[in-house]
């Protein structure tokens, strides 16, 4: 599996959010670093097929992004994860499973499995509105994994998670990334530790760093801090 992002840009009126970005992703975990407003969310939205680029194209194994075929490969957790407050976690996951076109039998077992993985089995029948921020985020992570996605795009997935949950999340992502493409954005460098094979850093809609985590571990922290101060 290979995603090709080719000279992709996004303009909002006079503002350039993403400026002719090109890169390719293969199986493994890639971290997307950048300060607020760097263009990370816009880029991820375009890659998730919910925002049309102003220019360029995105394809996964030659499948264009705005197709059902592409979406069938995709798992996505948006930055401001939406939910129905009066749905229970279980019902919500079943609903997302139907949106993903998963057969009911498979959906039931997958929902139970993921509720267990994200530690929400005990509260599966409680309404989401009664959940803490971290619990809601775990529902979001579970829904993204329902269809065993070959492409997993996570926008600030660790927001609201406590340190223990972050560690568990990193393990989970590391496991998924062995055979699938995982791209997740964060503004916390330590989130990428031991997980991300590759790191992309964005500023003003363009990449200022694209390299292996192992190549730049020490420098990356310093570079990112420098970028944040700009």
């Amino acid at each position: 599996m290979r995603i090709k992002v080719d000279r992709v840009s996004k303009h909002f009126k006079n503002k350039i959010a993403v400026d002719r970005v090109s890169f390719e992703l293969q199986e493994g975990v890639t971290g997307l670093l950048g300060a607020n407003g760097a263009g990370k969310t816009t880029l991820l939205r375009m890659m998730a097929g919910i925002l049309e680029p102003s220019g360029g194209e995105i394809k996964a194994n030659d499948i264009p992004v705005f197709t059902e075929e592409y979406r069938a490969l995709l798992g996505y957790l948006p930055q401001n994860f939406g939910y129905y407050p009066d749905f229970s976690a279980r019902k919500f996951l079943m609903y997302i499973a139907s949106l993903k076109g998963i057969e009911k039998k498979v959906a039931v077992s997958k929902t139970e499995e993921l509720l267990e993985v994200v530690g929400l089995s005990d509260v599966a029948n409680k309404k989401i509105r009664t959940f803490s921020g971290g619990m809601k985020q775990r529902v979001g992570i579970a829904q993204a994994l329902l269809n065993d996605p070959r492409i997993l795009i996570l926008d600030e997935p660790t927001a609201g998670l406590d340190p223990g949950e972050r560690a568990k999340f990193r393990d989970l992502i590391g496991e998924i990334g062995k055979n699938n493409i995982v791209l997740f954005s964060t503004h916390i460098v330590s989130d990428l530790e031991r997980v991300a094979g590759r790191v992309l850093m964005m500023r003003d809609g363009a990449f200022v760093y694209d390299g292996e985590w192992s190549d730049a571990e020490g420098d990356l922290e310093a570079l990112y801090l420098k970028e944040l101060k700009r």
């Binding site: 059902e68 996505y76 948006p78 997302i96 993903k100």
Partner: peptide, 18 residues
């Protein structure tokens, strides 16, 4: 209003079938 559109549109059946 619920911000559910993002999730919906990223799902296979989130446009036509929905």
């Amino acid at each position: 209003r619920n911000n559910m559109d993002q999730l919906m549109f990223s799902c296979r059946n989130g446009r036509r079938q929905t």
